[in-house]
C-alpha cells in the first residue's frame, strides 16, 4: 500500500488507513496555524489524525460526548486566546446546528474538518441522510464549505480554510470525501439476523 499513490487508492481503500499521507500533512497544517485545542468525536477516517493530536504536547486533544460541545468549547478557547479545530464525521454535523448560532452571532472563528460518510460506496443506509445534506446544512448555517476529493489536496484545503477562519474571524468546514478516507467495510462474516439469507 505504501508505494501506491493516493489517487490509485481512491474508491477502494479501507476506512482508517493509517498510512495515508494526507494525515501528517493536515496535522502539520494545524500546527502551522497555531492550533492549541483539537476537539473531536472519532471517525475511522480521522483515527490517525486524532492519534497525532493526542501525542503532540503543543495540543490539547479533547474527546467530546457530542459534536455540539466542540462548537462551544472552541468558542471558549478563543475567548482565552487559543485557536482550535473541530474534527467529526458527517453525521455529527447535524448535532452542531443550534450551537452554530453562537459562532455566527458572536463571529467566533470555527475550523471544522469533516470526514464524509454516506457518500461514496456507503454500505450503511443510515449514514446517507447526513452524508448527502452536510454541505447544504453547513452553508445554510452560514459556514464557508470547502470540499476536497483528492488526497494530495486535503492539506492545502485545510490551510486555505484556516487562513479564512482565523483572519475573519469566520466559520468554515472542510469536507473530506469518502473517496479519500474510504468506505467502512462490513465483514462478510457478519451475521445478518431477521431476514432471509
Amino acid at each position: 500500500m505504501q508505494g501506491e499513490t493516493a489517487k490509485g487508492r481512491q474508491g477502494n481503500q479501507k476506512r482508517g488507513d493509517m498510512t495515508a499521507q494526507w494525515v501528517p500533512e493536515v496535522f502539520q497544517t494545524l500546527l502551522d496555524n497555531g492550533i492549541g485545542q483539537v476537539a473531536y468525536v472519532p471517525d475511522a477516517g480521522l483515527a490517525a489524525l486524532i492519534e497525532m493530536a493526542q501525542a503532540e504536547p503543543r495540543v490539547t486533544a479533547v474527546a467530546l460526548s457530542s459534536e455540539q460541545e466542540g462548537v462551544a468549547l472552541l468558542a471558549g478557547a478563543w475567548l482565552g486566546g487559543q485557536r482550535g479545530a473541530l474534527l467529526m464525521q458527517s453525521s455529527g454535523v447535524g448535532n452542531c446546528i443550534n450551537l452554530l448560532s453562537l459562532t455566527q452571532t458572536c463571529r467566533f472563528p470555527l475550523l471544522m474538518v469533516v470526514t464524509m460518510r454516506g457518500q461514496w460506496g456507503e454500505a450503511n443506509p443510515w449514514q446517507v441522510p447526513m452524508g448527502s445534506t452536510a454541505k447544504a446544512v453547513l452553508e445554510q448555517a452560514g459556514l464557508v464549505v470547502f470540499e476536497v476529493a483528492e488526497a494530495d489536496r486535503v492539506a492545502e484545503t485545510v490551510a486555505a480554510a484556516a487562513t479564512m477562519v482565523f483572519n475573519g474571524p469566520r466559520a468554515a468546514a472542510v469536507l473530506i470525501s469518502q473517496r479519500i478516507v474510504g468506505a467502512k467495510t462490513f465483514t462478510a462474516a457478519a451475521t445478518v439476523t431477521g431476514q432471509p439469507r
Partner: peptide
C-alpha cells in the same frame, strides 16, 4: 453571558479553562 447556545455553557467554560 450566553443569550442562547443552550447546553453549551459548560463546554465553553472547559475550552476557556484549557486555554487559560
Amino acid at each position: 453571558p450566553l443569550w442562547g447556545a443552550m447546553g453549551g455553557a459548560v463546554s465553553m467554560g472547559l475550552g476557556l479553562a484549557l486555554a487559560r
